[in-house]
């Protein structure tokens, strides 16, 4: 307990705290003993390939999936005993849309507000604001079915905001959307961040994670393999720049030994070769001196994608 009268309301306390958190489904260990903390006001990311255990973690935080082992506190409360109190202060965007297709856009927000036991006048007021925020004011009386994928996602986010949550958990909010719709959606998340809403986001998209997340963890096979800000992670696990080489299809790419001494790290992938160095332009110049002539070359900065490749030996995007 504290001066505010209930546990977890002091700003410096983490909103979410996990120690040795485990989730099992029968013999499958979906989450294998992870530790992390999410603080008020930050955007915290979970990155990882399919099956890494991101959704399982999100569902435990959301108090809809029982913890198999370890310690988990959300707002200082135990999900096993205080689920309704946790959920009352949470906004949830699940990986799989579960909007109510038997109701209209507006009714989706209204009924959700009622689930949180908000007074009807309060809900009405918030609906206007949230429809505006989700850019769905014109679709107010529409059923959910005919909405585009991006609109549905935005409605799900609006629905999750109806109770003015302290913490919002978004499980792959942009997966399956076209770039335009993704852009609109990430712009909305950016606004939430600026309003000080704490966000936990999972994603496959490194570029987005890099821009939005203050801190993130990379998950693989149920474990956290790295943690930090995007910049820290890149500095720690990769070089400043990368030279990407593509060779014509059917031509055997040169072996690693061909690049001896040119790069700090070399990755030969199915479709391209990556040379990690702090000055990729110079590496490029050296390349032609050695008589290596790829079909295409690209000099770019290191991204989280490269960090992921280094840590897991795999590319992230399917």
């Amino acid at each position: 307990m504290n001066a505010y009268g209930y546990p977890g309301s002091v700003m410096s306390d983490p909103l979410v705290e996990a120690r040795g958190l485990v989730k099992r489904f029968g013999d499958i260990v979906a989450v294998d003993g992870i530790d992390f903390e999410v603080r008020a006001g930050e955007v915290f990311g979970f990155l990882g390939p399919n099956g890494a255990g991101k959704s399982s973690t999100m569902r435990m935080i959301g108090a809809v999936s029982p913890v198999s082992a370890g310690h988990l506190r959300v707002f200082g409360l135990d999900p096993a005993t205080d689920a309704p109190r946790i959920k009352a202060q949470l906004g949830v965007v699940p990986q799989e849309d579960n909007l109510d297709t038997e109701l209209t856009v507006e009714e989706n927000l209204y009924i959700y507000g009622r689930y949180f036991d908000l007074p009807r006048e309060v809900i009405r007021r918030r609906i206007d604001e949230l429809l505006e925020f989700a850019q769905l004011t014109e679709r107010r009386d529409s059923r959910v079915e005919p909405l585009s994928g991006g609109m549905k996602r935005r409605l799900t986010i609006a629905r999750g905001l109806i109770n003015q949550p302290r913490l919002m958990i978004l499980d792959e909010p942009t997966t399956g959307l076209d770039p335009q719709a993704r852009h609109v959606l990430w712009d909305r998340l950016w606004r939430l961040k600026q309003q000080g809403v704490t966000l936990i986001v999972t994603t496959h998209y490194m570029d987005e994670a890099e821009q939005l997340c203050d801190r993130l963890v990379i998950m693989d096979h149920g474990k956290i393999v790295a943690e930090g800000s995007p910049r820290e992670l890149i500095e720690r696990h990769s070089t400043r720049e990368v030279l990407e080489l593509r060779f014509p299809v059917g031509v055997e790419p040169p072996p690693e030994s061909a690049y001896n001494g040119m790069a700090k790290r070399i990755e030969i992938l199915a479709d391209r070769t990556l040379l990690y160095s702090d000055d990729a332009e110079r590496t490029l110049a050296e390349l032609s001196e050695r008589g290596i002539h790829p079909e295409q070359t690209l000099v770019r900065r290191s991204t989280l994608e490269d960090v992921f490749l280094k840590l897991t030996g795999r590319t992230l995007v399917d």
């Binding site: 959301g62 309704p84 959920k87 009352a88 699940p94 579960n98 109510d100 949180f116």
Partner: peptide, 19 residues
């Protein structure tokens, strides 16, 4: 069946304080 599978409004409700 709609609540569990077709519409999943049970899951949606369970993400709120409802049990």
């Amino acid at each position: 069946m709609a609540g569990i599978r077709w519409v999943k409004f049970y899951q949606a409700a369970l993400a709120t304080p409802l049990t």
